[in-house]
Amino acid sequence: MTSPIKIITFRELGSFFDSLTAYILIIAFLGFSGFFTWIYGGDIFIRKEADLQVFFSIAKWTLFFFIPALTMKMIAEEKKTGTIELLLTKAVSPRQLVLGKFFACLLLVLITLGFTLVYYVSVSKLGNIDHGATVSGYLGLILMSAAYISIGLFASSLTNNQIVAFLLALFIGIFFHFIFDVLSNSSRGILGTLFLNLSVNEHVESISRGVIDTKDLIYFISLTLLGLFAAEWLISRKK
C-alpha cells in the first residue's frame, strides 16, 4: 500500500505537467531570472564576481509571485468542484491531503530551481565560485518556498475562489517578504527586533551569507508548519 501523501503528491505533480502550469512556471521563471542574471542591469558581467547573488535576489521575488499561482487552486478548486468530499471520504486524512499538496508544489519548485543549476555550472567556469555560499543560497530559496507554499495552501483552504486565494496568499506573503523588513528599519527597540525576526528577507539573507544558523532554520520550519496546520485545521473543521 502506498501512502496517500505520495499518491496525492504525484497526482498533483502530474496535473501540473498535464496542464501548462508546470511549463509556464519553469519557462517564465528561467526567463526572468536568466534575463536579470545574465543580460540586464547589474548582471554578472558588470559585477565581475563569480557568484549567483543577482540570481538569488531575483529568484526571491519571482518565487514570491509564482508560488501563490501554484497553490491558489490546490484546495479552493477541490472545494468548489466538490472533489474534496471525494478525497475525504476515502482513506485520506486532512493532514495527508495537505501534505500531499505541499510536497507536489515543493517538488515543482525544486524541479524549476534544478534547471538553474546550469547557471551555477556556467558561473563556476567563469571564475572561482564560492560553493558554500551558492549551496546556502539555494537552501535559503528552498526554505522560503516551503514557507510560502504553506501560506498559499492556508489561503487556498480559506476560500473556494482561486483568485481570492491568490490575492490572500500575496497579501499575507507581502508582510513576511517586505513589510516586516521595512517596519524593522523604522522601529526601534523590541518592536524593531520583532519585525526583523519576522521578516523572511532577513532570514534568507542570513542563510545566503553562508552561515546556517539554527535560528533561521527554526524560523522557516515553524512558519511552514504553522501554515500547514492552519490549512489542515480549516479542512478538517467539518460543516
Partner: peptide, 18 residues
C-alpha cells in the same frame, strides 16, 4: 471504516482533467 465504504456523492464530483 472509510476504506470499507464506497461512496458516490451527490453531483458526482470528478477530477475533470484526468
Amino acid at each position: 471504516i472509510r476504506r470499507a465504504i464506497g461512496y458516490l456523492p451527490e453531483h458526482n464530483p470528478l477530477y475533470e482533467d484526468m
